[in-house]
Design a protein around this nucleic acid. Structure first.
Lengths: 259, 259
DNA sequence: GTGGATGTTCATCACTTGATGAACTAGAGG
DNA sequence: CCTCTAGTTCATCAAGTGATGAACATCCAC
């Protein structure tokens, strides 16, 4: 006990000289990520460590989805995860590092699944792509995750929805993670909407994207508006509706022949 | 000068006893709003004060739209407005009070304009309401504000868009400000879509709302996605497209006869 | 079984945050 | 011209913020 206090006193002296202009958002030191998980050979300790890391990410995911990056403190996350605050810096270096890690953990998997779904759809129907079919393939993996028992996916979706409508993350960051899968969809849709103009396709996608994001944000709004008749978490209710609504919109804007 | 320092020292003693468990978000004292603006009789001083208040709100609007409530400090707003930090507490009591004031300032006006637009539309067409017509009337005043030279309206719209997708504000708060105007739209649409089911109407509106919010968020995303072909601030490009896209979606979900 | 690495806990730092009291200033009202 | 008050500025507070070093613990490899 006493040694700790004594050392802390020395620590105080040591730090007195630091007066750099560091601000939030800048890295203060290079963080060496502890143990990149390698092959399947997992020691007992490594497994426990991995579980701690995941528990932190789960907590961060949920809290960031609810209050955003700035509405959550490192201590909040640590408390919610039931770990020590210092572990967050140990694993992720900075608060921002943890924020990014939340995205990294899930983005790859869901994107791969969506690519695969669209590939499978195209392989099945060949040249006769329909608007509904393309959009359905694009959305299906998301809906499947929403049906999962794991609440983490829904928190993640809500976080993406929040970030997507923000000037801070909605541009560059969302582009980095999701542009590839979107361009794949646009490519598919071009087959179902021959001669469609780029502007119409992109604006239509913007509208589809907005609808999806608001639904996934699960703000409780539609419950209030509909006095409980509609529920945010009812995938069966909004899934096919979104496909049909969006497909009709795409056709209205992108089809050659006008009514 | 010296008197100030001396008094500050006394201040220090005085506050030493305060140790209540106050936390962020709780009001600490009742804030008496300084001078409720009354009739048109404005003294020179009152005018200057009103202008300061508005400059603070302008700055807050812009910064909150960019970074959210928690991403902005009271000092940030004061600096951006070119005023003293203490004036914010003087005028609005708390940071949260300022946040609410940003909404209060514009919400009433825009809602009234939208109500009037829908009233005028209904008065014009009588019983023969169309889906496009109703949606256009609902959106028109927003588009008109977007065309204004005043950048404040666009900041406000972006802030609403950000708040709308957040779990923290997207439910109760948005409901409080905007439910009335939405129910007016739904009522109009029922005339154009006889026999439509409530669930279909509400889900359709949810999708329209999401599209509108993402567009108004102006995140720069569509510029990146379309490689500059589409621009967030191009009302002429998205206005009529949104009306047509949404109308087609509503018809698809809410019309009695199926294709 | 021992020694070194990996993971965890604790105390504390430098700095920021929202808020406030008191001093100061300039108009309005007499 | 003087006074009073709404408005403004300044210094400072208590609580909280992200981050870090050092002590401690535990497990794995040897």
């Amino acid at each position: 006990m006493e040694t700790r206090v004594a050392k802390a006193a020395a620590n105080l002296q040591q730090r007195a000289g630091r007066r750099d202009g560091r601000r939030i958002g800048e890295r203060s030191r290079q963080h060496k990520k502890p143990r990149p998980q390698e092959g399947p050979a997992k020691s007992k300790k490594a497994l426990q460590s991995q579980e701690t890391r995941d528990r932190i990410l789960d907590a961060a995911e949920e809290l960031f989805a609810r209050h955003g990056l700035y509405g959550v403190t490192v201590r909040n996350v640590a408390d919610h995860a039931g770990t020590d605050q210092a572990l967050i810096n140990y694993y992720f270096g900075t608060k921002r590092g943890m924020f990014d890690a939340v995205f990294e953990r899930r983005a790859g998997g869901i994107n791969a699944a969506r690519m695969a779904a669209m590939d499978a759809y195209e392989a099945k129907v060949g040249a006769s792509v329909t608007v509904e079919g393309a959009i359905r393939a694009f959305l299906q993996p998301i809906f499947e995750n929403d049906r999962t028992a794991d609440p983490g996916w829904r928190h993640f979706s809500a976080l993406v929805a929040l970030a997507n409508n923000s000037k801070e993350w909605g541009g560059q960051m969302m582009s980095r993670y999701f542009d590839a899968v979107i361009h794949r969809l646009i490519g598919l849709l071009r087959k179902g909407l021959p001669g469609a103009k780029d502007e119409d396709l992109y604006w239509s996608y913007q509208m589809l994207s907005g609808s999806l994001m608001l639904i996934q944000a699960e703000t409780g709004r539609i419950e209030l508006l509909s006095k409980g008749k509609c529920r945010s978490d009812d995938v069966d209710a909004f899934g096919e509706r979104l496909v049909r609504y969006a497909a009709a919109g795409f056709r209205e804007l992108c089809e050659r022949k006008r009514r």
